[in-house]
Design a binder for these strands. Sequence first.
DNA 1: TCCTGTTATTGATTTATATCAAAACACTCC
DNA 2: GGAGTGTTTTGATATAAATCAATAACAGGA
Lengths: 261, 261
Amino acid sequence: MPQTPPSPSQHTAGRQMRHERTEGDLQHCLLCDRNSGGLCNRIGRDGLEALASSSRRLVLPPGSTMVEEGQAAESFFNITRGTVKLFKSLPDGRRQITGFADPGQFLGLSRAGLYAFGAETVDTVHVCRFQRPQFEALLNDLPHLKRNLLTAITDRLAEAQEQMLLLGRKTAREKVASFLLGRTQTEQPPSDDTPPDPTPVASVPMTRVDIADYLGLTIETVSRTISALRREKLITSTENHCIRILSPDALRQIATGQTAG
Amino acid sequence: MPQTPPSPSQHTAGRQMRHERTEGDLQHCLLCDRNSGGLCNRIGRDGLEALASSSRRLVLPPGSTMVEEGQAAESFFNITRGTVKLFKSLPDGRRQITGFADPGQFLGLSRAGLYAFGAETVDTVHVCRFQRPQFEALLNDLPHLKRNLLTAITDRLAEAQEQMLLLGRKTAREKVASFLLGRTQTEQPPSDDTPPDPTPVASVPMTRVDIADYLGLTIETVSRTISALRREKLITSTENHCIRILSPDALRQIATGQTAG
DNA sequence: TCCTGTTATTGATTTATATCAAAACACTCC
DNA sequence: GGAGTGTTTTGATATAAATCAATAACAGGA
């Protein structure tokens, strides 16, 4: 895996440049823009240029600390590749992962100028980083950006509520089934015309420890539960860090508690 | 308890009116504005007039359904009095209360035009209700309102993350201690110069069922745990639906897991 | 005031999941 | 290719909280 930013040449092939650096970032933004649902949607070419010139792209290796709980919130990130884990901890080390942020998601909101959570890369992660004052300025200049951010946070809040239902009221089996189904959404191919894969694949780049800390379980219970689902032929492990869901309907039944087992 | 809106006369005494109804609501808004942290902060008199004329005040009896999960999101509420519970449910009736909304909080964000949660009044609740299209228009007209909403949602998201830590990783005792401490913040008097009460009082208008569904426990465990804290003289029950915290420091230690017991 | 339904408390027992322990597997680096 | 390290799986046992069950406290209406 290359850990240096990819050369912009592959993106700008066949186009003329204006300013080297900015144009490279702009191309990157234009690519981003095609993936719907992100912060940069419907923001217009001028907006994208402003975003491109205010941000820097970074590539972070697995296990990098991006944000520490309680630190001054200096940066705002938009993830373009890879997976980031967000978490809160207790003094004795117990940890709760509050979410995994995949490409298209932002990261770095603050309460009273301080981050209220920690964030660490799960695998190799590409981000656009903004300095906070510049991002604030962009928010004021680009009403679409503000609106997109509002929509994005609203989605996050809804996800958080769903996760609270999981943590507070679901069994281990229901939790794991919900988790696996949730990990299929993110990796949808950009084309709309292909029919949905009847046996979707869950992207699981994180360790058992991370899954356990996300579901409020121990690693042993996670492992046992995944083994049980495999034994029942509802899922099957594929190559690198992926799990194929053989029976999405059955898994959905389990995830929503509509099953005896 | 009166369930009709209070007469505006007590607020407008000694002032001249312009339009009867609007002026009454405006006075109400001006009062709201004094409580910091709400949506209507720093919004200016013109903004308050726009808000007042776009909203209706309502008084809802205990147990009223304000929002149903999956319904079209037609209204947006700002709570001015009382407590509302927000929740998500599973098909078999298991329920997770995702938060209690107290005065100053909003309610009614939607994802894709549908409410993602249910909401029900705990006690008698006063709200300002906006129709969604009108609220959207206000958001575009009043940049301060948009900014306040962004700040408010960010706070909610941080609270949700804290609650996930509680649900996933805290013991019953730690959960109850956290809950009681959390219920003291809201009822702070508006004056800043008084020293903080050394034995704060937690406002607990909700039933044991609601507390259990909020903490991911059963009513029996909640009851037993509160009894234990009382036996240890860390708390004491006062009159109507309140619990006095005799030893906030000890309770804080418990809530953050820094204690043997 | 008593009656009645609801809510809260307390006790006895069960159970899902945690904890403790060890073996199997999968990398990485010589 | 094999030693060494970390991760995952599987097994045996313990325990916190759930469940089942009964009593006690409370609130509202006649």
